[in-house]
Amino acid sequence: MTELTVRRPGPRAWLTLTVCEAKMVVRDTAGLVVPIGLPILIMVMNASAAAGEQVVNGRSALDVYVLPLVLTIVLTSIGVVNMPSFLAYYRRSGILRRLAVTPASPAMVLAAQMVVSLAQAVIGIGAAYAVAVFAYGALPPVDLGVALGVAGLAVAAMYGTGMIVASVAPTPNSAVAIGLIAFFAFGAVGGMFGDTSALPDPLRQVGSWLPFGATVDALSAAWAGTAVDTSSLVGLALSATLGAGVATVFFRWD
């Protein structure tokens, strides 16, 4: 007779898996272009025109409009496009299935991947922000704490949306396709391609509740030091909750 104690993998396993996921990402050099290169590109394209235009509280159009937009694009692309396509690839290739017969829980894979993609986002946003500060004299948000809080909520909303994509997509290719459609649709009604005042009212309204528009609006307010719309925060919280709910019911590991 032997005794066996159930022991879940500890912090060392979580750390090892995270380091492994990071190595996977770093070795896939092409995959780094979008999260790290794109924010700088968007910033540089818009910065010189926007930097001189004062808007409110000593903040320029660069601070109040361009930087929130750049930040939102990075968070959306990572949460809504990258994460579901990696999950779909891992599922299709059998990696998740292989891990499912070890004591590692699928949650570990998800957490490790989130940490790594957030690190990419921080590096990409940090680089773009550094360029904005040193080359164009950008200023930090008037309400820095609010901006950080909104960014955290936005991350949850984007990953929530990404989990919905990952749950409904049957194949890796369809995950990328659905993710991109969601990305551009959210962006189009959320201000990615310019002012949304040209859109029909109901569409503009919905766009400001969806994660992209809500994040841009809330970050913009934090940068300007004005009050953040409650509807933006409610929209983001709903996306995060809905995503977690849908994923819990429909997401399949194999």
Binding site: L4, V6, R7, C20, M24, S93, G94, I95, R97, R98, V101, T102, P103
Partner: peptide, 14 residues
Amino acid sequence: RQVLGVQLQQSHLH
């Protein structure tokens, strides 16, 4: 999971 080791048919790794 702690006492069973599995080599799956065509299992893929990172």
